[in-house]
């Protein structure tokens, strides 16, 4: 009898242990599932955060580009306003009595340009090209331009001639041409400064 009781007790104990282990396994599975769900949520959240950060960076980049463009336009308007612009052009006609070497420009006594011409550039001028030698911003009022032309004159002698002109800078852009022509009668070059209408 006692033996039977012992056997049944043993069976009961084994069952109890079995139930406990199953319960333990179930709870472990549940906890691991919960953990995986939580990690997935975290991952999704971090992905979302990253996406929004990326969007922010893109927006910021766009804003910087817009700002850069606005600054560029503003700078251009401030530094080279069309109304205060004065441009000086050099042109040459025939050029038999003068071989251009360099031009020196002074506005109101201040040197603003000193340009050396290469053979190729002189050739371009002789073929009808016009060279913008200087562009400045001047306030309205009277100004004085002194242009000194250096080169070879008749009989390939060193030649240096100046031309002066006073001009009135009104409202609006101004264009001036420094023209080198030949004076056939005198067999000398002539330097003329004129304003473009």
């Amino acid at each position: 009898m006692a033996r039977r009781i012992l056997v049944s007790l043993g069976i009961c104990l084994m069952f109890a242990f079995g139930v406990t282990s199953i319960a333990q396994e179930t709870s472990a599975v549940e906890s691991s599932m919960a953990a995986s769900v939580a990690s997935e949520t975290e991952e999704a959240e971090s992905r979302e955060r990253f996406r929004s950060l990326d969007q922010d960076v893109q927006d910021l980049k766009k804003e910087v580009l817009d700002l850069n463009r606005d600054l560029f336009l503003l700078e251009e308007e401030l530094l080279f306003p069309a109304n205060s612009q004065v441009a000086f052009f050099i042109s040459m006609d025939v050029g038999e009595y003068f071989e251009l070497d360099s031009i020196n420009l002074k506005i109101d006594g201040k040197e603003v340009a000193n340009y050396l011409y290469t053979e190729r550039e002189v050739g371009a001028l002789l073929r009808g090209g016009v060279h913008r030698v200087h562009m400045a911003n001047l306030k309205t009022g009277d100004h004085e331009l002194i242009a000194v032309f250096t080169g070879k004159g008749p009989h390939t002698r060193d030649y240096r001639r100046g031309a002066t002109m006073s001009f009135d800078k009104g409202i609006g852009a101004k264009y001036m041409e420094l023209e080198i022509t030949d004076r056939v009668k005198k067999q000398q070059p002539e330097f003329v400064i004129k304003e473009w209408e």
Partner: peptide
């Protein structure tokens, strides 16, 4: 652009 020993002016961009 600079003056050269031969007397002609030379420009780098050329």
């Amino acid at each position: 652009a600079l003056k050269s020993s031969t007397g002609e002016n030379l420009r780098l961009s050329e």
